[in-house]
Design a protein around this nucleic acid. Sequence first.
DNA 1: GCCGTTTTCGGCCCGACTGTTTTCAGTCG
Length: 588
Amino acid sequence: MVAKGSAAKARAGTTVENVEVARIFRELADLLEIQGANPFRLRAYRNAARSIEELPESVDAIARSDPDRLCELPGIGKNLAGKIVEIVTSGTLAALREVSRELPRGLTTLMGVRGLGAKRARALYDGLGIHTLKQLERAARAGRIRDLAGFGEKTEQHILQELAARSPGEQRVLRSVAAQYGETYLTYLRALPGVLQAEIAGSYRRCRETVGDLDILASVKPRTPLVGHFVGYPEVEEVMAQGPTKASVRLRGGVQVDLRVLDQESYGAGLYYFTGSKAHNIAVRRIGQKLGLKVNEYGVFRGKRRIAGRTEADVFRVVGLPWIPPELREDRGEIDAARTGMLPRLVELGDIRGDVQMHTTASDGRNTLEEMVEAVRTLGYEYLAITDHSPALRMVQGLDRDGFRAQMKHIERLNARLRHVTILRAGEIDILAHGALDLDDETLAEMDLVVVSIHSGFDLPEPKQTERVLRALDHRSVDILGHPTGRILNRRSPIALDLERVLRAAAERGIMLEVNAQPDRLDLDDVSVRAAIEVGVRLVISSDAHAAAELRFMRWGVDQARRGWARKEDIANTLPFREFRKLLHARR
DNA sequence: GCCGTTTTCGGCCCGACTGTTTTCAGTCG
């Protein structure tokens, strides 16, 4: 199916997406694994897939214009460069067709079932001819799987459970939701006497926008029965595994939580190890190896002697690196940066001086302007922009020209008597179908700050969508492009946009891009944040609050920006009000 | 299949738990 879709696209003359190339490589790796191919070859395909996925520019464009440059991408050599060119030009991959002559493509979906890997997929196919989830379920129900060598009754039951559990809960959990589950669990665990330290590690600690599961790490005094306490948590629905130092449970609501218990001497090494990412850990372990050291979750060892483990900083120190913030640990260049003293000093929540997108009851907000101002004051910000919607957004009753003018007058009166905080007269103006703005030029020119966003026409093809956005950015009153890709996590894909061109245009015109901090938007994403900074685009982090309580979403946006290597100076709303205002004036 | 402050050949991260095994393979993170 993958190859067919690509072929159709290639014929239509449009580009093959990076994620699609990555998916083909992953599928090929899975099939090769089932065939029993050299494991390092599989790793090469999977590394390449990841590398392509994280590439902020189009691999299709590189393949067409300058194929030699493909070999400069991490994990891509001559062979894989050739395969990328083949995918981009023909839409298919001969190697994939070849493997699927021997093995049905569907076999790889079996590997998506927890507990089934390549070996068992192969056994299921060879023994029972199973290559779809439906066949798998039927065979399990009929009790035919238990007779296969290496399988048993328990495995069969487990497969049925996994199949039953999977349909609704395949999505990753939003970081903000994971935070609620995780922090409560943590409080419960810490309350057990004998628990010395406990933290959430994994992708949650790395501040990824979504998490697959939660990894909790704890150190205890000897003989503390933490695993028992862990599985006894009232919200636990199912205990999936339980050993002396490790356990996995599934909570009501479907979130999986893993616990690892270590003693204090190993806590730092364990925290480091289970924070990941896997790719980062492997890279650092390799450095350790070259120094004659063994790095594992219990510490760093020279021979049998542990030379580090109590803290993360110790682990980094003995392999010759400074401590690297978890947000950067993705093996995207942070290790080289650390080695050469080039790690960025990342922006922090405390650096934020203003919030420049929020809504009031004048459009779709739930609190009045005065209530929002008061809430902003409590947070200690110096300024805020009120950015109610424009008229095109019918369903929320956006403001029209007169509405905005009345609101601006109102704000002027409020500003006259406010101290310590200034309200910017602003709006979130819709970008209409062909890139025109949803408010007259005169009113726009009177505003202190103009955010423009797309709220309709999400499905335009890339060239049209890109032209539409570029045209909107041509408007001289525009200051900020709001939630630039329009994606909603787990619900709506990003619009098709040539982000490179948009970034270049924004850089030229001094237009800022938003990192929208709504936990289901987090738009721009981490890779795009970094790409924006690299071409010199200034960013803002905005809560886009639709209620006073949502002003606190700012933290999710800051996390996201940090993952994109953003420093304080990359984020315009870390500026004091005078300087931020100067920045706005300089544009006009 | 990639990659190189030991290398263009010979490496490529490491340990816990489960279930099916009589000492370990498979899977996962």
